[in-house]
């Protein structure tokens, strides 16, 4: 086959929704874009363990503690599935970590916000996992096979994450005055960062068009954001909490909620590293990785020794 026909073959698969698999020919830019997108997602899962991990030792009941621990562990699993998917594209996990630790790679900026009270565990599960699900469900049908399969696995687990978060919020909102205050305070702090999670508005989103064509993105940022707001505002009503947006109102003609101006200046600053916890989060990840190096080396050395010993025994 000529390069031309390779490309035609690739395009034909895209068209017919046939998954692209690791050994298939793919344009170099497709591969690079995928590596960037999948690894960003993987990094988000791993860094995302930290703000919630903060509260494992302080969870207010044993049941909540078990649930939170299992939830944060799931995020580690998601990171692992996604790193594995990225590795099928010919990059190692160590390399991806280097990109994260050197600040070259990005991760979801929401995790650069602090978790200040227990209610933040509720708000994160409900809003952040909720937004993540909305982003991720379409990716179960993404064009790259290993990525799509990883996302199927991820999405199955995410549903419990959002529900446990909502349950925390519900319990707080039905609780005492101070618990309600806690819940409202958490919603106030997490609302705007959550809706920023869908990324910059479509007219300012450089990769969208190409990514949509490649089917590694299936809806635009604004489409998903609108869907999230429509659904979540109704859920806030059940909680009896108010969404901190004075301009929020139902638009009968559009069949959607109108919402206020998003502070994109804040968004870009957090992306650039100026969020409240950027440095701390990266530092924590780096410390875990570098602090674990002697452990990984030891296990590799031991495995090598054992191989040699069994070779000697066989000889």
């Amino acid at each position: 086959m000529t390069v031309h026909s390779f490309e035609e073959n690739f395009e034909e698969k895209l068209e017919k929704d046939i998954a692209i698999e690791p050994r298939d020919w793919m344009p170099d830019t497709y591969r690079k874009t995928l590596i960037r997108q999948i690894s960003q997602h993987a990094h988000s899962e791993i860094v995302g363990m930290l703000p919630e991990g903060n509260w494992i030792t302080r969870a207010p009941s044993l049941r909540r503690k078990a649930v939170l621990l299992a939830k944060v562990q799931d995020e580690a699993g998601h990171g692992l599935y996604l790193y594995s998917a990225a590795e099928t594209l010919g990059i190692s996990r160590d390399e991806l970590y280097d990109q994260l630790h050197s600040g070259k790679a990005k991760y979801s900026s929401i995790f650069n916000y602090p978790t200040l009270t227990w209610a933040d565990m509720g708000a994160i599960g409900w809003l952040v996992d909720g937004a993540a699900i909305m982003n991720q469900v379409p990716l179960c049908r993404t064009s790259y096979g290993p990525y799509a399969r990883a996302m199927v696995r991820v999405c199955k687990e995410e549903s419990f994450h959002q529900r446990q978060g909502f349950e925390i919020m519900l319990t707080l909102s039905k609780g005492t005055a101070v618990q309600k205050k806690m819940a409202q305070d958490a919603l106030n702090r997490w609302w705007w960062p959550s809706i920023m999670m869908f990324g910059p508005p479509d007219d300012n989103s450089p990769h969208t068009e190409q990514s949509m064509h490649w089917k590694i993105k299936r809806f635009t940022n604004d489409e998903l954001r609108q869907k999230f707001i429509d659904v979540t505002v109704e859920q806030a009503k059940i909680l009896g909490l108010s969404v901190p947006d004075a301009d929020l109102k139902w638009n009968e003609a559009r069949g959607h909620y109108d919402y206020g101006k998003i502070d994109w200046d804040e968004f870009w600053n957090v992306v650039k590293g100026n969020g409240p916890c950027n440095k701390e989060r990266l530092e924590t990840r780096r410390k875990a990785w570098e602090g674990g190096e002697w452990v990984r080396e030891a296990a590799a050395a031991y495995s090598e020794k054992r191989k040699q010993r069994s070779r000697q025994e066989a000889a």
Binding site: I56, L69, V72, Q73, A76, L80, A288, G292, V295
Partner: peptide, 18 residues
Amino acid sequence: SEWCGHGPILEQDIALTN
């Protein structure tokens, strides 16, 4: 549980949390 998120490698982070 204090190790969760801080383990030397993801696989062992998950194992220890179990």
